[in-house]
């Protein structure tokens, strides 16, 4: 099978997942679609560097998230995208909020996804990288250029925000 047709198969198989990643990072719409195309374009160009022994998802997701994070950084050119680690630590803990352990129905799942989309960039990005793309704290830290603890704090705050938001809509979480 030629390089082109092999890539065509991968494109068909992974388009949705890559689009999903871009959409979660950038929000729905043209921007995410463009980012997906750009991801595959870049992947195509460096396809010869891809090791067939490594999972394709890992490889293409890294390309996609790098590209999306670059785009998001462009938006926050004036300010620091991920804030200060200490400032984030100083935010009051909402330890009293119940931890999310299950959702009652698919509507609740949709709501949770919508809430993720509404999170500020600095919480949403690590959350998507950790729980959608599925990479380690260390990888997130090096990709975003922050410390591992900083990643931990951002993730913790992201989860707290989600817990709080779901409590506000009582029928969703428990």
């Amino acid at each position: 099978m030629s390089r082109k047709s092999a890539f065509g198969v991968l494109y068909t198989d992974y388009y949705r997942r890559v689009y999903g990643l871009c959409r979660r990072l950038l929000g729905a719409g043209q921007l995410a679609e463009d980012a997906t195309q750009e991801t595959f374009m870049r992947a195509y160009r460096s396809f010869h560097k891809f090791e067939p022994t490594q999972p394709f998802w890992q490889w293409i997701a890294a390309i996609a998230s790098n590209h999306c994070v670059d785009l998001l950084r462009g938006r926050h050119r004036d300010a620091q995208l991920f804030g200060q680690e200490q400032a984030e630590l100083d935010v009051a803990d909402d330890t009293q909020l119940p931890i999310l352990t299950h959702l009652e129905n698919t509507e609740a799942a949709d709501r949770l996804n919508a809430l993720v989309a509404e999170l500020p960039d600095r919480y949403r990005i690590p959350l998507v990288l950790a729980y959608y793309q599925g990479i380690s704290y260390d990888d997130i830290a090096s990709q975003l250029g922050i410390t591992r603890t900083h990643v931990g704090v951002l993730l913790l705050r992201a989860k707290e925000k989600l817990r709080g938001a779901l409590i506000a809509t009582p029928e969703a979480g428990k």
């Binding site: 997942r17 999903g20 999310l100 799942a109 949770l112 996804n113 998507v128 729980y131 959608y132 989860k159």
Partner: peptide, 10 residues
């Protein structure tokens, strides 16, 4: 739950 929810809709 987060893993599942985020990925299922994908």
């Amino acid at each position: 739950l987060l893993n599942e929810t985020l990925r299922r809709t994908a």
